[in-house]
């Protein structure tokens, strides 16, 4: 019995930090913004409960347009990142020799360790009117005057892909690492073409990694703040910017919390849909990345 009591005590002691963390920093704060979002200010220190903040959100086109724009851009970035990242991940996991594999993997990780801000700043130095790319084009004589590459959607997409592509490559490499080359060989021996082998063997095998990568990339993109604002300029119309604006600039916490709930509901829905469509679950995709 002493043994059993000791086990109970250990379990209890281990549960404490976990419970404090999840309850105080995740669950209650999120209930908090949910509560704030259904509270309307009708006068100084006078509040009323109702869906008014959500109605405001829907009736103001600029708000939901921003959300839609953020959503479509995030989906676009996720798809492009998958197409750009998958071949690189496959190369690292399957094509590169054993020694160069570790090196390439490390190279992939290095930008990850550098702040978002430094990365965005690097792109600014490259792309702006007086930047390196514009200067190079003038030097080669392809263009006659300075060209501004910043402050447009293409710059935002390039910058966002740059920020998130590692989160696509790493989980795909780790799933493909576990794949036996014999599976590919068997596919060829059975008469499969290169394309068939890729579609019927490699991609299904890499699916948990692909799903994990897509989820993380989508979340990071939809929740990103710096890259769209620094590379897209004042009119980048990113939803997180609206949240910041409501909270910090206008000090309208009720409406900021509403936007937060909307963004969270939306991204959770997309993640849920992605998991549902591919038959994966959160624990065996994201947790492995």
């Amino acid at each position: 019995m002493v043994q059993k009591d000791a086990q109970r005590l250990a379990l209890f002691l281990l549960l404490m930090p976990f419970a404090l963390w999840i309850l105080l920093l995740i669950v209650l704060p999120h209930l908090g913004i949910g509560y704030l979002s259904i509270r309307e200010k009708i006068g100084p220190r006078q509040y009323e409960f109702g869906p008014g903040n959500y109605i405001d959100f829907i009736s103001e086109p600029i708000y939901w347009n921003t959300l839609l724009r953020t959503a479509t851009m995030s989906v676009l970035v996720t798809v492009l990142t998958l197409f750009i990242g998958f071949p690189v991940a496959y190369y690292i996991a399957k094509v590169a020799g054993r020694r160069s594999r570790a090196g390439l993997f490390l190279l992939c990780l290095i930008p990850l360790w550098v702040s978002d801000l430094v990365r965005a700043f690097g792109w600014i130095v490259l792309l702006r009117e007086t930047g390196v790319v514009s200067g190079f084009l003038q030097w080669t004589g392809l263009v006659s005057g300075p060209v501004e590459f910043l402050y447009n959607d293409a710059a935002v997409v390039i910058g966002l892909i740059y920020t998130v592509v590692l989160f696509m490559i790493v989980p795909i490499v780790s799933t493909l690492d576990g794949m036996d080359d014999a599976l590919i060989e068997a596919g060829y021996n059975l008469g499969g073409s290169r394309w068939t082998v890729l579609r019927r063997i490699v991609i299904p095998y890499a699916m948990p990694g692909i799903v994990a990568g897509c989820i993380v990339v989508f979340m990071l993109t939809a929740g990103s703040y710096l890259t769209p604002i620094l590379l897209g300029g004042k009119n980048s119309m990113w939803f997180t910017e609206q949240i910041y604006d409501q909270f910090i600039t206008r000090y309208n916490w009720e409406s900021g919390a509403t936007f937060g709930v909307v963004l969270l509901a939306f991204t959770s829905f997309v993640v849920w849909l992605g998991l549902k469509l591919t038959g994966q679950n959160l624990a065996n995709t994201v947790a492995k990345g």
Binding site: H30, I215, V271
Partner: peptide, 13 residues
């Protein structure tokens, strides 16, 4: 999988 901005505002609130 919660956007960082949301973690920030919820803890602030």
């Amino acid at each position: 999988v919660i956007p960082g901005v949301i973690l920030g505002i919820s803890i602030l609130v």
